[in-house]
């Protein structure tokens, strides 16, 4: 009897561990439904509109206005991944990456020192864990570029390697046909 109970206990423990593993896997793959889908929808729609506005400003050649719009986006608010999944983090990294890229490409417009741009990148990267995505990789690459500008080669290399690692994961996923 006690042996049977022990077997049942082992089975139950296995089931719990398996379910936990599956949950962690789904969470890492960002396939858990958001607890607040409305937050993700609101964020997605707001960013869509803002990015289109930036597109139009850039088409008109108004770099300053585009930077201003992206700076306004940067000030948030940004929802937590708990509310809106890792997609929200990826969207944030996209906006920050676009802003930093634009500032690097047009240093003559509203000049910002390199260390301030580095802080901007770090602020964008934050502490949130996020599934591999090209927007996070771009922020790491920009970090490397900024360190390189500062002559900090070791830090630049480290950031570049991080970006390459993310992109390698993405390419493997694409070539492997994983979702």
């Amino acid at each position: 009897m006690s042996r049977r109970l022990g077997q049942l206990g082992t089975l139950a423990a296995g089931m719990v561990l398996g379910a936990a593993g599956m949950f962690v896997g789904l969470a890492q793959a960002d396939r858990i439904a958001p607890s607040r889908p409305d937050v993700l929808v609101a964020l997605g729609q707001r960013l869509d509109v803002e990015h289109r506005a930036v597109d139009l400003q850039l088409e008109k050649g108004d770099i300053a206005a585009a930077i201003e719009s992206l700076e306004a986006l940067r000030s948030g608010p940004w929802p937590s991944p708990a509310d809106a999944t890792g997609a929200a983090v990826a969207l944030k990294h996209d906006a920050y990456g676009r802003l930093v890229r634009l500032r690097l490409d047009h240093p003559e417009v509203d000049p910002v020192p390199t260390d301030a741009l580095l802080k901007m990148v770090d602020e964008g990267l934050g502490e949130d864990e996020v599934d591999a995505n090209p927007f996070t990789a771009r922020l790491w690459a920009l970090r490397g570029e900024l360190y390189e500008t500062e002559g900090l080669d070791d830090e630049a290399l480290e950031a570049y390697e991080k970006a390459l690692e993310i992109n390698a994961t993405l390419l493997e996923r694409e070539l492997g046909g994983a979702p």
């Binding site: 960002d30 439904a33 958001p34 889908p37 409305d38 993700l40 929808v41 997605g44 729609q45 999944t85 997609a87 990826a90 969207l91 996209d94 995505n133 090209p134 927007f135 990789a137 771009r138 690459a141 490397g144 570049y160 970006a163 390459l164 992109n167 993405l170 390419l171 694409e174």
Partner: peptide, 23 residues
């Protein structure tokens, strides 16, 4: 890395759009 981003970003944007649509 910029070239890799240009290559990978559109698909990632589509995936996020799909998540927003699901939401």
């Amino acid at each position: 890395l910029q070239a890799q981003f240009d290559m990978l970003a559109p698909q990632a944007r589509s995936a996020i759009d799909a998540r927003v649509d699901e939401g």
